[in-house]
């Protein structure tokens, strides 16, 4: 049977099938299975106890989970929108520059060259209430008389994490949108000027619709990136104070590795991954809608 001509394609594909199964398929299936078990790292035998939807039921009844879930959603929304606005402004500015644009583009990419862990350490130092450069600067300028507890107060801690995230990733938006601006055909813009548009109207009616596909691509990529935020939060606040900056993945890591409740952690992971898929789906829909008419520009 192995010698039959119909088997040859499958035999040739077999090595890759084996590799994919080993590194993707089996882990996915095992983790999916474990989300239906009370799997605890300290008691391996629990992996074989099927409990049905129990993890998910507990999860949905768990306020900590919903707080982390909601906080992640807010975090993604606020970070993405601010990064979009800042990135767009940055791209529009750089687009006006005629000499040295390449150098500026390279400089813009500096924040992306650092590991998020290091960015986390750096901002932890910046926002440190006693030795941090920010508080010291505010003191020296006479703007504050008492140190501001940036990473200790819940709201301020979230703000600090957002600031670090935006510092690191705005340039990704800027680069993607700049490439859109550079590809922007000049003709419709000139036509709009002749048609009576002032610069703001040109931007609103011509430039922005043209940029929408680029914006949605950036949004898709970045929504996945921000939704899996872990490293920077882990370093800066570790979810604290008192869980006020706990995001989905910091919570999942805590449940899985510190509490060893791997079954529960996997159930949480699946919920967050399905959410991310929903986000991606939404942005792709928007993307293909906005791209529909961009074929006939010339």
């Amino acid at each position: 049977m192995l010698r039959s001509p119909r088997a040859i394609p499958y035999l040739l594909l077999l090595p890759s099938i084996v590799v994919i199964a080993a590194v993707v398929l089996v882990p996915v299936l095992v983790s999916l299975w474990s989300s239906f078990t009370p799997y605890n790292l300290t008691r391996p035998a629990t992996l074989f106890t099927f409990v049905g939807w129990r993890n998910y039921q507990r999860l949905f009844a768990n306020a900590d989970f919903w707080w982390a879930f909601g906080r992640t959603l807010v975090f993604v929304t606020v970070a993405l929108n601010l990064e979009l606005v800042f990135g767009l402004a940055l791209a529009l500015l750089v687009n006006r520059v005629t000499t040295g644009r390449k150098t500026i583009r390279t400089i813009m990419m500096f924040p992306m060259m650092f590991s998020p862990i290091l960015v986390g350490f750096q901002f932890k130092y910046v926002f440190n209430d006693s030795v941090g450069i920010l508080n010291n600067a505010l003191f020296s300028l006479g703007l504050i008389t008492r140190p501001i507890p940036w990473l200790v107060n819940g709201a301020l801690a979230n703000f600090s994490i957002l600031a670090a995230e935006i510092w690191m990733s705005t340039s990704i938006f800027a680069i993607l949108l700049l490439s859109g601006l550079l590809a922007l055909p000049q003709d419709p813009i000139e036509a709009a000027k002749v048609d009576g548009c002032n610069p703001v109207q040109v931007f609103r009616h011509i430039t922005l619709p043209f940029l929408m596909p680029f914006i949605y691509i950036a949004m898709t990529i970045r929504s996945l990136d921000v939704a899996r935020a872990y490293d920077m939060v882990r370093i800066m606040t570790n979810g604290g104070p008192a869980g006020r900056t706990e995001l989905l993945w910091t919570l999942i890591a805590r449940v899985g590795y510190q509490n060893s409740q791997m079954g529960m952690a996997n159930a949480m992971g699946y919920v967050s991954i399905l959410t991310s898929i929903a986000f991606t789906f939404y942005f792709y829909r928007k993307l293909s809608l906005s791209r529909r008419y961009m074929g006939g520009a010339e």
């Binding site: 055909p185 003709d187 419709p188 000139e190 036509a191 709009a192 000027k193 002749v194 048609d195 009576g196 548009c197 002032n198 009616h205 011509i206 619709p209 043209f210 906005s290 008419y293 961009m294 074929g295 006939g296 520009a297 010339e298």
Partner: peptide, 20 residues
């Protein structure tokens, strides 16, 4: 004067239609 203040219309070589 900017183009919008000149009361002119222009037809471009590449049509320059608004694709959206």
């Amino acid at each position: 004067l900017p183009p919008r203040a000149r009361n002119i219309s222009m037809v471009f070589q590449n049509y320059a239609l608004y694709p959206h």
